[in-house]
Design a protein around this nucleic acid. Structure first.
Lengths: 109, 109
DNA sequence: TACCGGTACATAGCAATGCTGAATACCGCC
DNA sequence: GGCGGTATTCAGCATTGCTATGTACCGGTA
């Protein structure tokens, strides 16, 4: 994608990752691969890891180190209660924005 | 709104303003008032002006100074062809993101 | 006159977030 | 030993919205 997508991801990528973790626990490399698979072709490797560090520091996830057969140990993230609350608020914010944008897209105000 | 909305507006506020200008020409103060009316209660005055300066520098809008009865002259912005192209690309980017998020919202929790 | 509120625009410095680019480390296979 | 895939980390940068403040024009009013 382009610069447009980059800017739009600010504020939404966190929600996307939290939503992924709401379905099941996952580790950074896996999440990046999943995103690329979904069409977010240019998501930078480092971006996801930095985001994971942030949401860990904010207490939205629990972390467990799990040995891997094919490389260094994985850091598996699980969404906790606080994370679920934050995700819910994310959906509320996004819904508001989404509705306004749909309105504009359809035909004006 | 909160920090969440602030971050989410990065990358979308520009599109919102372009979409407004696609309907009809407008000036900064007017746009800010409209946004506040639509529920974007905490949009900062300066934010819109800075954004307008940016999209003018990028050549998305034409500007005309119009005297006002109630204060300093208004800078009325009109979307030009380049701006319309950019807006279309914005909608494509947003649609992509929106679809992915809807998917996550539905299938997730 | 002097002041206030509403209209209208501008800007310097800050905070948050994604990207670039590079480094580190583990493993199997040629 | 070297290569490629797996897996994480970090320093420095660009972009963008917010805070705070300043400028300017006008009408009403005390």
């Amino acid at each position: 994608m382009g610069k447009q997508m980059t800017e739009m991801l600010k504020g939404t990528l966190e929600g996307i990752v939290l939503a992924i973790l709401a379905v099941r626990s996952a580790y950074g490399y896996e999440i990046t691969a999943w995103l690329r698979d979904q069409g977010f072709a240019d998501i930078a490797e480092g971006t996801v890891y930095a985001l994971l560090v942030r949401i860990e520091q904010r207490g939205f996830v629990d972390v467990e180190k799990v040995p891997s057969e094919k490389g260094p140990p994985r850091k598996v993230y699980s969404l906790n209660t606080q994370g679920r609350d934050h995700l819910e608020e994310f959906w509320r914010t996004w819904s508001f924005l989404s509705e306004r944008l749909e309105q504009l897209h359809r035909g004006g105000n």
